[in-house]
């Protein structure tokens, strides 16, 4: 397994796009934090007649949520999609599977290294957002259980990226692995929720990315976490079965 992890690390770290995507994620988080800080400051000025908003315990959780914003997630999920999509795109999956005939090892090492790199991107994005928000002196949010909030947001980001990885493995098309989660999270789920809630009241809670967001935000976290985790596990399970059973 260690050889496969080493192979995957060299694969992911030897292409510029990995580093570019991490840089974009950090820049995007900083930009969003700046925008958030500006809007918050304007609102605060209006509401409290120039009163200074000070740094509080909500800074880090809010920064985490900025770092796991859908736009940032789309960027970092591309790293996950590339982990397997580039192998199919360039035919190197056959080289990889010749070196490592055990496909379970290949699948595992790809997801482990991709999620590890995404964790680094998440932490860097979080730190960048926190610095911007801290310098701005503006933050809101729930200061209770900041660590739990960060962990939940981090897990949501990992789940989102794992789904992108799984969809790429299933379709063998990198672009679909990135676009499908975006479209589902940004368009289809909000649409389905607004149109069908009156008929199927439980539907919003059962949708993957809605549940993921609720989990990250701590809204009925346990149930939402189980739903989101279930979707993520199911996507990975289907991807794993197809990866091991199909011709390379």
């Amino acid at each position: 397994m260690s050889a496969a992890l080493r192979y995957e690390w060299r694969r992911i770290s030897s292409i510029r796009s990995t580093w570019i995507l991490i840089a974009i994620a950090v820049a995007l988080s900083s930009g969003l934090a700046l925008l958030f800080s500006f809007l918050l400051g304007s609102t605060a000025d209006g509401d409290s007649d120039g009163a200074e908003i000070t740094l509080d315990a909500g800074l880090i959780p809010v920064s985490a949520q900025v770092a796991a914003n859908l736009l940032v997630l789309v960027v970092v999920s591309t790293i996950a999609a590339q982990a397997i999509g580039q192998d199919y795109r360039h035919g190197t999956i056959r080289v990889t599977l010749t070196e490592f005939p055990n496909r379970t090892v290949v699948f595992s090492s790809k997801i482990i290294i991709a999620l590890a790199v995404i964790t680094v991107a998440f932490v860097l994005s979080l730190v960048a957002a926190a610095i911007v928000l801290g310098v701005g002196g503006n933050t809101t949010g729930n200061g209770d259980d900041p660590l739990g909030s960060i962990v939940r947001t981090w897990l949501y980001a990992l789940g989102f990226c794992a789904i992108a990885f799984a969809l790429t493995a299933i379709t063998r098309i990198l672009a679909l692995g990135v676009v499908i989660p975006l479209v589902v999270a940004a368009v289809l789920e909000p649409l389905a929720s607004s149109l069908l809630t009156n008929y199927v009241s439980w539907l919003p809670d059962a949708l993957p990315f809605t549940a993921g967001l609720n989990f990250a935000n701590g809204t009925d976290a346990l149930r939402a976490g189980l739903v989101f985790g279930g979707w993520t596990f199911a996507a990975l399970a289907v991807a794993y079965v197809m990866f091991t059973r199909r011709d390379a």
Partner: peptide, 24 residues
């Protein structure tokens, strides 16, 4: 198996270093 089985954006040396990871 094929003369095009490489990532066109990874240098030749990096490509081989990646392949060499299995046997160190």
């Amino acid at each position: 198996l094929d003369a095009r089985f490489f990532n066109p954006n990874r240098t030749a040396r990096a490509h081989l270093r990646m392949l060499g990871a299995e046997s160190n």
